[in-house]
Structures are given as C-alpha cells and as structure tokens.
C-alpha cells in the first residue's frame, strides 16, 4: 500500500497532470483544416510540439521540490527530458484515446508531414509496445515525473538534489505497478525498460529535425 505521504504526493501530481492538455485552439485546427499538405502539417506539428513543451513546463514547475533546484539545472532537466516526455505523452494519447479527435487523422497528418518513415515507424512501434503494458493514468503521470527528474542529464551541476527528488517517484511507481498489475511482477522493470527505448528517440529526434529542415 502507499503511505499517506505517498498518497498525498500522488494526488497532488495527478491534479497537475490532469491539467496537462494541449490548448483547444490547436486541437480545433486539426479537425477544421481539410487541406492536408506537407507545409501545413509541418506548421501544425511545430505548434503542437511547442504547446507540448509549455504544458510540460507547467507540470514540472509543480513537481515537489523542483523550484528549489538551481535555475540552470531546472532548464537542463527540461531540455534533457522534453522530447522523451513528449513521446511518452503521445504514446498515452494514442493508447488511451485521450484525444477527442480521431487518432487516425493525427496519424495521417504525422505520416504526411515530410518526416521519413524511418523515423515514424519506430515511433508508432513504440506507442504499440507502451500500449501492451496497459498503463494506468497514474503510472503515466509518475513515469513522466521520473523522466523529467533524471539526474544524469547533460549539464546538471547538482545531480544529488535531482536524485533526491526522483527517488520518491520511483518508490511510488514500483508500488503502483504491484497494486495495479498483481499478476505481472515484471511491470515495474518493463516500465523502466521503456525509458531506455525513449532515450533512443531523443537521439533520433535530433537527426529527424535536421533532415526535416533540409527538406
């Protein structure tokens, strides 16, 4: 069972995670724009990525202890985790059908945005492999906190302080896995395994943006 302190922490993070939404005007754009050309999809995806980052920063600011970190370390954590958190959030949106809009339409726009299939196919494979874990909303939220508070990001000066902030979330995540997936003792290890996969996306994302810009 979670301790009372862990329950309070989880509740606090869930409240903030629930507000973690892409603004309606961007969502509306997806539905209203009939024209489906590469340039428009490019602008659409960059707008959506920007919103993703802004929403992520708002979520991060409320993580207990984050605001006590050195300001440049705060930026280094966010820079190091933004892409991973974005892919994790996308995986959640696709798998839990959180989008009020059709995910098929979104997939079509992503596939028709000038990004090479070499990058897109592994991304949709990742969504599928995350989907197989049948994660709950709590697990997504806490895993996102774990991703953001990763102490070994580049340029972090005070790794120890970050570690101290991440640990309580790892403990909660381990318990949640046991509570929600009693028949699957490997759940916690599998979730952490997905983080390794996420890291490769961070690397691919940089290459992908470069090739996209050239095109």
């Amino acid at each position: 069972e979670l301790t009372q302190e862990q329950k309070d922490r989880l509740q606090f993070v869930m409240d903030s995670y629930s507000k973690n939404r892409i603004p309606q005007d961007i969502a509306t754009k997806l539905v209203l724009q009939d024209e489906n050309n590469t340039d428009e999809n490019f602008v659409f995806l960059t707008d959506m990525a920007t919103s993703h980052v802004q929403v992520l920063v708002e979520f991060t600011k409320k993580l207990p202890g984050f605001q006590t970190l050195d300001h440049e370390d705060q930026i280094a954590l966010l820079k190091g985790s933004a892409v991973e958190a974005m892919f994790l959030r996308s995986a959640e949106l696709f798998n839990r059908k959180l989008l009020e809009w059709n995910t098929d339409l979104l997939e079509e726009r992503i596939r028709n945005s000038g990004i090479s299939n070499d990058y897109i196919n592994p991304m949709f494979n990742f969504y599928k492999s995350v989907g197989e874990l049948k994660m709950t909303k709590e697990e997504y939220a806490v895993l996102t906190a774990v991703v953001i508070l990763t102490p070994d990001r580049q340029y972090i000066k005070d790794k120890e302080s970050v570690e101290k902030l991440q640990e309580p979330f790892l403990d909660i995540l381990e318990k949640l896995c046991k509570i929600h997936h009693p028949k699957n003792p490997q759940q916690f290890a599998r979730l952490l395994g997905r983080l390794t996969e996420l890291r490769t996306f961070s690397h691919h994302h940089t290459e992908m943006l470069l090739s996209w810009r050239v095109n």
């Binding site: 960059t46 707008d47 920007t50 980052v53 802004q54 920063v57 600011k61 930026i75 966010l78 820079k79």
Partner: peptide, 21 residues
C-alpha cells in the same frame, strides 16, 4: 512565431510564465 523559437527559448519563457510568443 513559436515555430521559430528553439526548445531552450520555449522552456525559459514558460518557466517565467511568459507565453506572449
């Protein structure tokens, strides 16, 4: 436009609560 801002700019502005761009 936001699409011309780099990731770090977006993060710095958002940390300060500045969403004008």
């Amino acid at each position: 436009p936001a699409s011309n801002l780099g990731l770090e700019d977006i993060i710095r502005k958002a940390l300060m609560g500045n969403y004008d761009d």
